[in-house]
Design a protein around this nucleic acid. Sequence first.
DNA 1: TGACATTAGTGACTGATTGTTACTAATTCG
DNA 2: CGAATTAGTAACAATCAGTCACTAATGTCA
Lengths: 231, 231
Amino acid sequence: MRERQSFQMKSAVRRTTLAVDVVVLSPRGDALAALLVRAPAGARERWTLPWDAPRPDEGLEDAASRIAESVLGSAPAFFEQVGAFSDGKRHPGDADVSVGIVALVPARDENPAAETEWFPLAALPTLAPRHRAIVERAAAVARQRVDQSPLAFRLLPSTFTLSDLQSVYELLLGRRLHKASFRRALQASYLVEPTDEWHSEGRGRPAQLFRFAPRKRRGVRRGVRFDLFTE
Amino acid sequence: MRERQSFQMKSAVRRTTLAVDVVVLSPRGDALAALLVRAPAGARERWTLPWDAPRPDEGLEDAASRIAESVLGSAPAFFEQVGAFSDGKRHPGDADVSVGIVALVPARDENPAAETEWFPLAALPTLAPRHRAIVERAAAVARQRVDQSPLAFRLLPSTFTLSDLQSVYELLLGRRLHKASFRRALQASYLVEPTDEWHSEGRGRPAQLFRFAPRKRRGVRRGVRFDLFTE
DNA sequence: TGACATTAGTGACTGATTGTTACTAATTCG
DNA sequence: CGAATTAGTAACAATCAGTCACTAATGTCA
């Protein structure tokens, strides 16, 4: 019983080193890609995630925003924490604890900033073990949340065709979807509204552009799904 | 452009104070309850989440396990991180950063350890602002993940009736479920298997006991759901 | 110019899943 | 014994998702 109470007598928290590690994801070609930064000479790996220590009185998301802006030139609109990492895995700056944050940005034509490069998730270069774990977790989080959170729309420009939207979903889910079913479900969700603009890709019929405009839905209470991943 | 590269020149990560704050959840009566610890005299709030700083070379989950064991007497079998918190909100130990971890334990008959008490989530006492945020996040995570993760089974003993299981789901989801639909979906999920034991609660027909025994399912690829919470 | 390839978008059929009602089964209580 | 109570299931109806087949609007190229 003394054991049980002893934790109350903790006096002060210890000092540790903290890093915010950002996984910037964007569709690139037909795959999700992460933006990596060339590591300084002498580092054990050539590439790293953009990272930094948060400044005094700077929130974690604020730090992530600053870090992402430093590599992108502008701040992404969407961030989500993917967890704190403090296992034995090595961090490039030897931080004791990393907070992993995923940022989503629409596809861009521009080349990335100097010393940075997009890598498809399936073809990442060697990263410090903790960075590898953070990227994997970020991808898993994006895949898991795609139905609950407007993730897909953060990977697209403000207006987009339904085919674009479907491609992003396919990219995140890693499988093909059926066009008619996808649109029927989207219709029922009241998440997008049409604009009066049309987009012509070259060949084929032009597609209507839509924008993300979620409207409140009547309480659609679905049953339990038991979608456990029991591989 | 110099701006974009400057983050590479970061030298050392700063020192911060880190706490692991644990939300131990358990069904208690007909509500989810969290285990709180009486705060030492002089603290601004009477109750706190169990928390501590991780020890040197101790992983976050290990720390959570140790902290939970110190209040429960035995270590819970299930932990899940709910995120890092470092906003302006006050922590009882003034930690710069908190890692929130939720632990799930089955309902127990025993009274909690001295100086601890179960509080239904809907009737929590005043907590330090950061602890309040962590509890809310923990509850939200539990509710969100109940379909993807075997959370519900961690809140039950090793064998349980289907009515017990349904009650836990109702408790986590905050709404009633239909018995026949629930069982049909559970059947299709291959998550439980019957034992040859039966449980008699007093009045009413005895119920068969089941155990959690997930079996591999053939790839059930469901369509996209667009279950965004657009309240 | 006109056939054809290509992409967008929709209607309709079918089978699967879910919500609901109503029933049967096994027990305790009085 | 009958009423109350909890467990468990069958069967119907309504909805939803997968598929196929079609129409529409453009560019390409012989």
